[in-house]
């Protein structure tokens, strides 16, 4: 279920590397925990992000969760569609529900992240 060409963080973000760019979103597990997403707060294009810096916020009716950047870089695009259709985070978290695109500073950042297999194992540890 979790794409094998992505990297995953313990905060339930995914990263897909395309050349020297990275696409970031939240995982299927994260969207299920949140429930129906009603609002996504996106950073301005051009923002410089460090590893684990807050990208923005995802809100459901009764919960709010910070999204952290698993890798460092400069924001080159945000998924504007989420402004009008935040539900895409629920329906297609690993695809149309992507959140931001970064110009990566250091590709080595991904070395500290999990592979799909590792992440699934990590989830077994938390899911009851």
């Amino acid at each position: 279920m979790y794409p094998t060409d992505f990297f995953y963080s313990k905060d339930h973000e995914w990263v897909k590397i395309e050349g020297d760019e990275a696409i970031i979103g939240i995982t299927d597990f994260a969207q299920k925990q949140l429930g129906d997403v009603v609002y996504v707060e996106l950073p301005p294009v051009g923002t410089e992000l460090d590893v684990h810096q807050t990208i923005g916020v995802v809100e459901s009716v009764k919960a709010v969760s910070d999204i952290y950047s698993p890798v460092a870089g400069r924001v080159i695009a945000v998924n504007e569609n989420l402004n009008d259709s935040p539900e895409m985070l629920n329906s297609d978290p690993h695809g149309k529900g992507w959140i931001i695109r970064l110009k990566i500073k250091d590709k080595a950042d991904t070395e500290k992240l999990m592979t799909a297999t590792d992440y699934e194992k990590f989830l077994e540890g938390i899911e009851p």
């Binding site: 009603v38 609002y39 809100e59 459901s60 009716v61 009764k62 919960a63 709010v64």
Partner: peptide, 9 residues
């Protein structure tokens, strides 16, 4: 919009 409020945020 309760996510603005103290009981959630």
């Amino acid at each position: 919009l309760s996510t603005r409020e103290q009981h959630i945020r």
